[in-house]
Structures are given as structure tokens and as C-alpha cells.
Simulated assay, not measured.
Amino acid sequence: MATGKDIKEIYDMMKTVCQETSKLMIVINDMMESEGFKAVSGGSVMWDRSSHFRSPDYWLPYFLQRVFAKGGNLNKGIGINVIFDGSMHGIENTIPFLTCGLLESEKDKLNKSNELYVAGWRDDEEVVKTEDGKLCVTNFSETGISTTTYYLPIDILNDQDKVHKYIIKPLINLYRGQFDDAKNMISDVAIGLEEIVGQGD
């Protein structure tokens, strides 16, 4: 086991990561609200965590998510999902990344979204994926939800202008059905699964 001093330094770094990610989420939330979008889940950004002593992997905030809807239409929205560690649900990421995307539901109102969490990387018989450049459309037959998403490395979002340029504007274009415009906005910065799992080095 690490020394007490090492443990404290690691803990402080983890706390800094949480604080910095909170600032990012606040900026995204405020920009979305200024565009007329409201979060569908209040202030919550996490679920599927544990306080049980036998589940330490679930103590940490391994992901964070915000889904936004506009004008009372709760069957269509846009959202972001930050993944620090996807290994518990099927992706061995080597870098933290954001999934940004459009969500459309045939059945239920949007809420927290497992579909946004796994969009673009889940592979099974209940999922149909098609790729168009850096955009990926994923249809989830069991829930009737479809997503149109792209991935960003978290470390490029180091100022508000980049957040607006690479998250807010492209997401609003996706919401409006302007897919080519969204694709052009993120073509130079969006990454693929190969880079996320460390095979694009």
C-alpha cells in the first residue's frame, strides 16, 4: 500500500479533478440554459454508485451526465456524458472523454440516459450503429431511443470559448437537424474509439 502522504496527495488530485469537472458542468449548464434548454434531472449528474464496503469501484464518480430538453418536448434532447472509467460497463478507456449528442425517444420522456452513456461503443443484437464521419447514430431497439453522438477528449475543453465551439453549437445544430454543420464543427477535434482505448497512438 502507498504511504499516508502518497494517499493524501492522490486524494487531493482526485478532489481537484472533481472540482475542475464541476466547473466544466456548470459552464455547460449555464450555456444550455441561455439557449433555452433545461436539464431534465435537476442538479443530479450521477447514478449507479455505491457506498457499500465491498463495491469500492463504485465509490468514485466514474461518469457524470447532463441531459437537456427544450420547450416542454421531453422526448427529444441533447446531452453530455463524461466518462472517467468505463471498464465496469464495457469500454477500457485510456483517457477521460465526453460523449456529446442528440437523444430522441419514441416512447418515454427523457431522463437519465444509459443510452447516452454507451452510445457509439455498445455492441449487441439490440443495438444498430451507423457512422457518418465523426458522428455515430445508435438505435436502441429495447428502449426506442436513438442517439447521434460524437466523442471529445476532456483536456481540450480548457476555456469557455472551446466549450461553446465544440459542445454547445454542435449540439444545438444536431437538435435542429443540421447534421452536416455539426459534423463540420467537430471534425478537427472529435476522436474515435481507437483513440479512447489507446489504439490510435
Results as ranks from 00 to 15, higher is better:
Asp57Pro: 09
Gly77Thr: 05
Arg49His: 12
Val163Gly: 04
Tyr58Trp: 12
Asn158Glu: 13
Val118His: 06
Gly43Ser: 14
Tyr151Asp: 01
Val127Asp: 01
Asp57Leu: 14
His52Val: 10
Phe63Ser: 08
Val137Cys: 12
Ser41Asp: 12
Gly86Pro: 00
Ser41Leu: 09
Phe68Arg: 02
Asn81Glu: 13
Ser50Arg: 02
Glu115Leu: 03
Val128His: 09
Phe97Gly: 00
Gly71Ile: 03
Arg176Gln: 14
Asn173Met: 11
Ala119Val: 04
Arg176Gly: 07
Pro61Asn: 08
Asp85Leu: 08
Ser44Asn: 14
Trp121Gly: 04
Ile91Ala: 05
Leu103Gly: 02
Thr147Lys: 02
Gly101Phe: 00
Lys129Arg: 15
Asp155Lys: 13
Leu116Ile: 04
His164Gly: 12
Met46Phe: 11
Gly79Pro: 03
Phe140Pro: 03
Tyr117Met: 14
Glu126Asp: 15
Tyr175Cys: 03
Val82Arg: 02
Phe68Glu: 02
Leu174Thr: 03
Ile78Lys: 00
Tyr62Ser: 10
Phe97Glu: 04
Ala69Cys: 15
Asp108Ala: 12
Leu116Trp: 01
Gly71Thr: 04
Gly77Arg: 01
Ile156Ala: 06
Asp159Tyr: 07
Lys70Pro: 00
Phe53Arg: 13
Asn114Val: 13
Asn81Ser: 10
Phe68Pro: 02
Asn111Leu: 10
Ser55Pro: 02
Trp47Met: 09
Asn111Thr: 11
Asp85Ala: 09
Ile95Asn: 07
Glu125Asp: 12
Gly133Glu: 05
His89Gly: 11
Ile145Ser: 04
Asp57His: 12
Gly86Leu: 05
Thr99Cys: 09
Ile168Lys: 00
Pro153Asp: 07
Tyr62Pro: 00
Thr148Ile: 15
Arg54Gln: 14
Leu135Cys: 05
Glu92Met: 10
Thr148Ala: 09
Gly133Asn: 03
Asn111Pro: 04
Ser105Met: 07
Arg54Thr: 14
Phe63Gly: 01
His164Ile: 10
Pro61Phe: 11
Ser51Ile: 14
Leu110Ser: 02
Phe68Thr: 00
Met88Asn: 13
Trp59Lys: 09
Lys112Tyr: 14
Gln65Ser: 07
His89Ile: 15
Ser55Phe: 12
Gln160Ala: 13
Leu116Pro: 02
Ile156Gln: 05
Ser50Val: 08
Arg122Cys: 06
Gly144Leu: 06
Tyr58Arg: 14
Ser87Val: 08
